[in-house]
Design a protein around this nucleic acid. Structure first.
Length: 351
DNA sequence: CGCCCTTTGAAGTCG
DNA sequence: CGACTTCAAAGGGCG
């Protein structure tokens, strides 16, 4: 469920205000002028959001009739067909991308596909949804659609029992190194150490030292399903790059973050819904998988950072605590503006 | 070569 | 249960 309960939903406004404030203060300078001009109007942001939208997007709420005949109805079929097939949306374009994913706009697990206007717009045009995306990705969309709820209610037994039409799915434990049982690399499965291991699948199929290859084959990494914002980023990144002539992802992501907030609730809801389906499919594909499985990669590094900041009396964390500010949403002026020494001179908020 | 940066959201962990 | 942490993507930058 999108985090509108704690920081979203009705709270979103407050959070967003803080973000907007933060944006104006801390982040603008990093974004090139041409990229930022379009984002100058914080007032226009956040106004359209409705407090109830999150229920629609969340996992808890699933109204069987909700998307009937709507934009989303074809999704499961999409998931089951082309994305993993040679003629499907698996992009041959990206040799560089470590994950076996198309590099532009489409998350193979998702066939973002559904991002076609037809799927999303209720007939209206959405500027964020390139009309040619399906064609570009070679995504096949069936003429007949089925509703999600009929497809997704998870059978207790897991993947093997999903439905006859999902029969080609197999338990993830049977999958080796990103290979689906069909022999097709699966986007969510990545050789453990990422980029380099994808060499196993390159066109030359360079032989790897046997022990290493064997070892890694036993430890494929199943990636987290993408959340709504990640899906949005994937789709819009290329557009932003084209518009802003930017390439640096950090700057682009800042822009995308602002644009995300500028989206109407309806537009965001599309991505929340897709993300929800993404998670559901992921759950079906990898019943036993947990995000915890991928924990630890950056853990040590982050902890070291924290230790550094914990020794810093003016760390944002401590600062917020000291002044009774919310750790997640409140911008911390004192620690941002003052030196550690000066910071210490400020009396803490009375308990 | 590999980590950092930067964004939001989901999910995990911890007190 | 709330607060906090980690990881998803991306690719230029940088040590």
């Amino acid at each position: 469920m999108p985090q509108l309960g704690s920081g979203g939903g009705d709270d979103l406004g407050a959070t967003d205000e803080m973000l907007a404030f933060k944006d104006e203060g801390e982040q603008e300078e990093k974004i090139p002028e041409n990229a930022f001009t379009e984002l100058q109007d914080p007032q226009r942001v956040y106004q359209e959001k409705l407090p109830d939208h999150m229920d629609d997007a969340g996992m808890k709420h699933q109204d069987p009739g909700m998307y009937k005949g709507s934009a989303y109805s074809g999704y499961p079929f999409l998931m089951l067909s082309d994305p993993y097939l040679p003629n499907g949306s698996m992009s041959p374009l990206s040799n560089k991308v470590p994950v076996v994913q198309p590099s532009h706009g489409v998350h193979p697990l998702t066939p973002l596909i559904p991002y076609s206007n037809e799927h999303f717009s209720h007939g209206s045009h959405s500027p964020h949804l390139p009309a040619d995306i399906n064609q570009k990705q070679g995504v096949h969309r069936p003429s007949q659609t089925s509703d999600i709820p009929g497809f997704y209610p998870l059978p207790p037994g897991g993947v093997g029992q999903i439905t006859p039409s999902m029969g080609w799915f197999t338990h993830p434990l049977m999958l080796g190194s990103g290979m689906h049982t069909t022999g097709i690399p699966h986007p969510a499965i990545v050789p453990h150490s990422g980029k380099q291991e994808m060499e196993h699948y390159d066109r030359n199929m360079k032989p790897q030292p046997e022990p290493k290859r064997e070892k890694e084959a036993k430890k494929p990494t199943i990636k987290k399903p993408l959340n709504a914002f990640m899906l949005y980023m994937k789709e819009m990144r290329a557009k932003v790059i084209a518009e802003c002539t930017l390439k640096e992802s950090a700057a682009i992501n800042q822009i995308l973050g602002r644009r995300w907030h500028a989206l109407s609730r309806e537009e965001q809801a599309k991505y929340y819904e897709l993300a929800r389906k993404e998670r559901q499919l992921h759950m079906q594909l990898y019943p036993g998988w947990s995000a915890r499985d991928n924990y630890g990669k950056k853990k040590r590094r982050t902890r070291e950072k924290q230790q550094d900041s914990s020794s810093d009396p003016a760390s944002p964390k401590k600062c917020r605590a000291r002044f009774g500010l919310n750790q997640q949403t409140d911008w911390c002026g004192p620690c941002s503006l003052l030196s550690p020494l000066l910071f210490q001179l400020i009396p803490a908020k009375a308990p």
